[in-house]
Design a protein around this nucleic acid. Sequence first.
DNA 1: GTAATATGTTAGACTGATCTAACAAAATTA
DNA 2: TAATTTTGTTAGATCAGTCTAACATATTAC
Lengths: 221, 221
Amino acid sequence: MISQTEENYLKALWNLTSSKGEASVNELSKQLDIKMPTVNSMMKRLAEKGLVHYESYKPLKLTDKGKRLAALIIRKHRLTEMYLVEKMGFGWEEVHDIAEQIEHIQSPAFFEKMDELLGFPKVDPHGSPIPDRNGKVETEQYIRYIKLSDCKEGDTVTFMAVSHSSDELLKFLNSRDLSLGSKIKVKSIEPFDESMTVSYAGRKAEMLSNKVCDKLLVRPA
Amino acid sequence: MISQTEENYLKALWNLTSSKGEASVNELSKQLDIKMPTVNSMMKRLAEKGLVHYESYKPLKLTDKGKRLAALIIRKHRLTEMYLVEKMGFGWEEVHDIAEQIEHIQSPAFFEKMDELLGFPKVDPHGSPIPDRNGKVETEQYIRYIKLSDCKEGDTVTFMAVSHSSDELLKFLNSRDLSLGSKIKVKSIEPFDESMTVSYAGRKAEMLSNKVCDKLLVRPA
DNA sequence: GTAATATGTTAGACTGATCTAACAAAATTA
DNA sequence: TAATTTTGTTAGATCAGTCTAACATATTAC
């Protein structure tokens, strides 16, 4: 059996290793806001359980078993977020903290039911892919998304996902009526700070800072 | 702050003390399947926190604060059970274990939303009252329910609640199409074992053991 | 290439939640 | 009421999960 605490380490490690495939004790420590020695000993435990590859002074990696388990926790988290938004009427900026708790519920039937009631969604309310029952993630399309900040003047794109969304960012997007699926046209880019002026359904000219554009994942038209 | 473990002690104590107003360390120990010394020291901790009246060798009682807190956990449990049955399509025999976990979720908004979506129900799927936001329980009608086993031949009653329902009992009731709200008529009582032959919607003559009748709470017609 | 800094590890302490063994008090039985 | 049984308490161990302090290894800067 795996504890809630262990699940949290796995999940954090999954997130950190998603790009490079590995992460440091230090990064994980910061991510979880738990001191390094604690993280270190937990890594040894997870290595004992066959979930993490641990060698002194080497970067951390998840084993296949660890990856699968982590993905299944992420699956529960994202299904929950989707359920909260679609079936209970929460805003996309409100659901993270609740899902953070519900993801630890032990009841396959509960999550299967959610999945079913939602019609087997492929992405969560922020556009992130929901791993399948076996912990496999459909990254095909997802990895092909580009940042809005990498677009050129005149480009027209579709807003597909938010990367590393924070409460504040989501509230900001709410306030500008910018939601997933919006067709965005880049009208101009300010050379000095790389802020963009864009137009989309309902908004003729909205200014978005580079910091915001960097978080918006889009699909070229 | 109160831990999940502490919440479980409070809840168990609330259940045990609901009739007599007090309970022994021994009873609580059996209820939770936790050894007496552990329970004992936890009672001291909860006394420190002002949730339990604890004196050596005296029966345990909840303080008003403890009662309120316990009732709020019960509220979350029962709202969850109702939600799982009404909104997610689970059977009344499936929801206890899931609710047992969800009751510990810390998110007032989550439970308020459930309550709202359910139309502010007064009872859970087993007929037990749902405490209100302030931890007050509407016992007025509930305490007036009587056991089916206390009825006489010829009585006609309405099935209102199940007391101390177990999975097996609920499955048994399912198999007999006996559900809350059913009008039950006591046709005869076997003097030897006090088993009853009753009739209700769809069933002309169904035999119910005394053990079963003892768990069915009914309202006289 | 050494010094300084950052990162990683070990050792040891603390708290929460559990246990067993031993002892004490209360309740029951004879 | 004395003996026995049940219930309650104390003491001390263990494990999970956290910390700080001290030490070790890598990395970076000069």
